[in-house]
C-alpha cells in the first residue's frame, strides 16, 4: 500500500462519514468506443475444436454406454446361439409347466408320473409319438422303463404353439443333464401332426394307439 497515504484526522472523519465519501466522486469503468471486433478468438476456437473432435472420435468410444476406455474393442462374443441352442433355451422355459409332474430332474414320481430321463417314449428314434403325446395327452395303462403307470396326462394342444411343442420336445429329448440324446423336433413336424390329428382334439391317446405310430 502506498505509504504516502495521509491519515485523516479523527476530527475530519468524525465530522460526518457520509458527507464526502471517498468513492462518491470516482467514475465507474467504461468500455472503449474505439474497439473493433476481432476474429482471432474464433480462429483459435475453430482449430482447437477440430483437434477436440479428433480426440473425442479416438478416445470417446463412439459415445457408447458400455465402452469404458477409448481403445476398447468389442470382445469376441460367444458365437451367436445356434437354432438348436435357441430351441433348447425355449424348451427349458416351456418345461417349467411339465416339471410340476415330471419334476425338474425329469425323473417323475414313482407310480404316479413316469420319468422322462431315459424314457423310451421320449427317446424314440422318431419324434412322432412324443409330439402326439404332448398335443393330446395320454391316458390308461402304459409301461415306461419297465414300470407300469395308469395316470392321465392332459392335452396341451390349445396351450402350446407349434414352436413351443417343438421346443419342449427337443428339450426333453436332448437334456444332457438327464442323459437324453435324440433328434431335434422342428415346428414343421409339429404342425404336420397337429393338422393330421386335429379331429382328435382333446381325446388322450392310449399307449396302444401310440405304439402303432411309426
Amino acid at each position: 500500500m502506498s505509504k504516502k497515504k495521509q491519515k485523516p484526522s479523527p476530527a475530519a472523519v468524525a465530522s460526518s462519514p457520509q458527507a464526502k465519501t471517498a468513492s462518491a466522486a470516482e467514475s465507474e469503468p467504461s468500455v472503449s468506443v474505439a474497439s473493433t471486433s476481432s476474429a482471432w478468438p474464433f480462429v483459435a476456437l475453430g482449430v482447437l475444436l477440430f483437434g477436440c473432435f479428433l480426440y473425442v472420435e479416438n478416445t470417446g468410444g463412439a459415445f457408447r454406454a458400455d465402452v469404458f476406455q477409448g481403445d476398447y474393442k468389442t470382445p469376441p462374443r460367444a458365437a451367436a446361439k445356434s437354432p438348436e441352442e435357441q430351441l433348447l433355451d425355449r424348451g427349458r422355459q416351456v418345461y417349467a409347466a411339465c416339471a410340476a409332474c415330471h419334476q425338474p430332474s425329469g425323473l417323475g414320481a414313482p407310480g404316479q408320473f413316469p420319468p422322462l430321463a431315459g424314457s423310451e417314449w421320449v427317446l424314440h428314434e422318431n419324434p412322432n409319438r412324443v409330439i402326439r403325446l404332448v398335443l393330446d395327452g395320454v391316458g390308461g395303462p402304459m409301461t415306461v422303463k419297465g414300470a407300469a403307470y395308469s395316470n392321465v396326462m392332459v392335452p396341451w394342444r390349445d396351450v402350446l404353439s407349434d414352436a413351443d411343442v417343438a421346443a419342449v420336445a427337443s428339450f426333453i429329448r436332448n437334456n444332457a443333464d438327464w442323459g437324453n440324446k435324440a433328434s431335434f423336433v422342428t415346428p414343421t413336424q409339429v404342425k404336420a401332426i397337429r393338422d393330421e390329428t386335429k379331429d382328435r382334439s382333446g381325446r388322450p391317446w392310449t399307449a396302444d394307439e401310440l405304439l402303432k405310430v411309426p
Partner: peptide
C-alpha cells in the same frame, strides 16, 4: 468408472476453455 466419452468430452472442454480465458 464412467463411459469413455464422458472424460473424453470433458477433457476436450478443458482445452477449449483456454480460448475464452485468454
Amino acid at each position: 468408472a464412467v463411459p469413455a466419452w464422458i472424460p473424453a468430452v470433458s477433457g476436450a472442454a478443458n482445452v477449449l476453455l483456454v480460448v475464452p480465458v485468454i
